[in-house]
């Protein structure tokens, strides 16, 4: 059965706390932290972007998969912060990893769902027998406008998954998608920051799609929440995934290993893939994991994974997510953060 044969994640070292951002705008950090269940978020270094994050995550995935990169037949990067408006991100990645040139490459965009889209298409290729291996990546260096609520959560990071049929560490047993035209969050061409519908992003957007996809997935698979050891729901903040999980019958314990948003923020296209990666770091053979992503606009992709014995062999071949999340952090002031994110107008 087709599934994940290698996975890897990467988040930048830099962090900014909710307190630091709140101070800048005269807001109350305690109430924001209680509202969002987010303490701090990652910030990309001045030399980091979706491409460099994807490359690092992909290198770890190849390391874990133990395959020759040349065997990878397709590479898809899902992001809403591709550094170029026109020119692919994936071409840089394949040349950096030594994949191809006989490889199919494409960049995906579907707000925060682009990562699971990339995984879905990579998986479909392998399942259909088009190729032995395909890689799907979700990564972002997301932008929140200064002073906007998004500024507390919009962060950077990503994860890469190599799909294959041999030495699979997490089989994909079922997939399901739920999509509708719902403009809860968008960014027009040429605009630097996204706009969003405020509370409209909640019930009609996030919850409708995530819960529907979760229900649809479990119905299709004939499974219940108790059948899963773990679940990952897209994490725009700390609260939403817990609430969506609760509605679908999941406990906090099932969600916790992949509930990384309090310490890294919302990595957008990287969010649910990285939640999965963090979960795979602790999962045991036989565990089932439900993943439901969400992308504004809007849609959700759902997957049912079954972890295999192979996981133990590859887990330690690349850095685990927890150490990346917890160690060697460099905290930024708001001024440094503004410089890093290009929010200061330079005279160039």
């Amino acid at each position: 059965m087709a599934g994940i044969v290698g996975y890897g994640s990467y988040v930048p070292r830099y962090r900014i706390t909710v307190e630091e951002i709140a101070k800048q705008w005269g807001k109350d950090a305690v109430s924001i932290k209680n509202g969002l269940l987010v303490n701090e978020k990652t910030v990309p270094g001045m030399d980091e972007d979706t491409i460099t994050i994807s490359v690092q995550a992909a290198k770890y995935a190849v390391q874990r998969a133990g395959i020759d990169p040349k065997e990878i037949g397709a590479v898809y990067i899902g992001s809403e912060s591709h550094p170029y408006a026109v020119k692919p991100s994936g071409t840089i990645l394949i040349d950096a990893l030594g994949i191809g040139p006989d490889v199919h490459v494409s960049d995906f965009e579907f707000a925060c769902k682009a990562g699971t889209e990339a995984m879905y298409v990579a998986y479909s290729h392998v399942k259909a027998g088009n190729m032995d291996y395909a890689m799907g990546i979700g990564a972002d260096t997301s932008q929140g406008a200064p002073g906007d609520a998004l500024e507390f959560t919009a962060s950077a990071g990503g994860s890469a998954f190599i799909m294959g049929k041999e030495h699979v560490v997490a089989e994909i047993e079922h997939t399901y998608s739920y999509t509708s035209d719902t403009a809860d969050f968008w960014r027009r061409e040429g605009r630097m920051y996204p706009k969003h519908g405020g509370r409209f992003t909640g019930e009609p957007a996030y919850f409708r799609h995530v819960v529907s996809a979760g229900q649809g997935m479990m119905e299709q698979a004939g499974m219940k929440a108790e059948d899963f050891s773990y679940a990952v729901f897209h994490m725009p903040n700390g609260k939403f995934p817990l609430r969506a999980g609760k509605r679908l019958g999941f406990t906090k314990k099932q969600i916790e290993p992949g509930w990384i948003v309090p310490w890294i923020g919302n990595t957008y296209s990287g969010a649910s893939p990285t939640g999965l990666s963090a979960t795979l770091d602790v999962a045991k053979p036989g565990d089932r994991i439900l993943v439901v992503s969400f992308g504004s606009g809007a849609g959700s992709d759902a997957f049912v994974f079954r972890v295999t014995d192979e996981i133990e062999k590859i887990r330690n071949l690349a850095p685990g997510f927890k150490s990346m999340m917890d160690d060697h952090k460099i905290y930024l002031t708001y001024g440094e953060y503004a410089k890093f994110r290009g929010k200061i107008q330079l005279n160039d």
């Binding site: 270094g45 030399d47 980091e48 972007d49 491409i51 460099t52 490359v55 690092q56 550094p83 170029y84 020119k87 840089i92 950096a96 160039d348």
Partner: peptide
Amino acid sequence: ILRRIRKEGHAGILQY
């Protein structure tokens, strides 16, 4: 590791 090294102005290519 791979990083962006420089930008060719505001409209040019990104160099890694």
